[in-house]
Design a protein around this nucleic acid. Structure first.
Lengths: 118, 118
DNA sequence: GCGGATAGTTTCTCAAAAGATACCAATGTT
DNA sequence: AACATTGGTATCTTTTGAGAAACTATCCGC
């Protein structure tokens, strides 16, 4: 039964990173502190609402900190915590796997093309 | 702009592993070939429907293969592909991170307890 | 016939997150 | 006044996956 405990651990991490936007946000912040608008531009098609709610959740979970400046126009900086930075190896291994996956897809396409040629 | 391409790669992997059941299924199959009922028992509370649909999707994506035996009672074996096994480092790094996260949560609880004591 | 084995399929409901769009606040500049 | 800056908030709709529960198919043994 104790062999199932590692199962539960991966589940914890998936809950933090379990969707497109969270992983992209964290990955962006690996570059260093960024402002709301900067993140929004670099992430592309994300809505303000979705960005806000994802940032707030990651803050709540201790992945990042949000620093509000007393100024107008408003300025808010987002920075990964140490815990957030420690997600880098996870993301890196994901990138490595995706590159392998891409190679496999390309290989599968080649096979399909050969079938069509016959 | 090319710096964003790695961003997209992590997204690909998250789509494969992006929820509780997929990561748990893959992790179970790292032990080797298993049957439907075996998976269902070991995963605990998953419904047949959810297990089936997750297995079919992982098969479609090339993460696992499904071998149907011509017998009654029905027998279907599920085995990770090479590509599926290559998700092991991703899952391992997730486990390591979750352990760190757990330590941080415990630390945060200690701080909160100290605050209450004062 | 009933119950057991196995791996599903079906139907409906619910929950959570994303998406689309509009609006808000404060200050500064023209 | 209008427009600019910034980081939001609010409301409604859509999408997706999970959950609950029932039913299906085939063979075998009692």
């Amino acid at each position: 039964m104790s062999e199932y405990l590692p199962d539960k651990l991966a589940e914890i991490t998936i809950k933090m990173l379990g969707d497109r936007w969270k992983v992209l946000i964290i990955q962006n912040l690996l570059d260093g502190t960024k402002r709301f608008g900067e993140l929004k531009r670099e992430l592309g098609t994300i809505t303000q609402k979705v960005l806000t709610s994802n940032l707030r959740l990651l803050e709540e979970k201790g992945i990042l900190v949000r620093k509000v400046y007393a100024q107008i126009p408003p300025r808010v900086d987002y920075t990964l915590t140490q815990l957030g930075y420690e997600l880098k190896p996870v993301i890196d291994s994901m990138i490595i796997w995706a590159e392998e996956y891409r190679r496999n897809v390309a290989k599968a396409l080649n096979i399909n093309l050969a079938d069509c040629a016959e």
